[in-house]
């Protein structure tokens, strides 16, 4: 099932399917390892609910909800 990265709950693991958003930000997100095919785990929300902490490519990355909304993931592929 395809959802937004921002919709994942703590502990959910998904596979990135599409990175959208505006040019420079999109590029930075991809450079940081969020590219189609990447396995990504939602770790937690910040205490105030935003930003969100993810684990991707073996490290911890934090993104705001608004950035995570531009990334589509599929929750089915779980190896």
């Amino acid at each position: 099932m395809e959802t937004k990265l921002s919709d994942l709950k703590s502990g959910n693991i998904a596979t990135v399917t599409k990175v959208a958003g505006s040019g420079a930000v999109k590029r930075r997100i991809a450079d940081m390892g969020i590219t189609p095919g990447a396995r990504i785990e939602m770790i937690r929300n910040a205490p105030l609910g935003d930003p969100i902490e993810f684990k991707v490519r073996g490290y911890l990355l934090t993104l705001r909800r608004s950035e995570a909304e531009d990334v589509m993931v599929s929750t089915e592929v779980q190896r």
Binding site: D31, M32, G33, R57, G58, Y59
Partner: peptide, 9 residues
């Protein structure tokens, strides 16, 4: 080395 995957990019 503890974060090779992203570092190799």
């Amino acid at each position: 080395a503890s974060n090779v995957e992203r570092n190799l990019y």
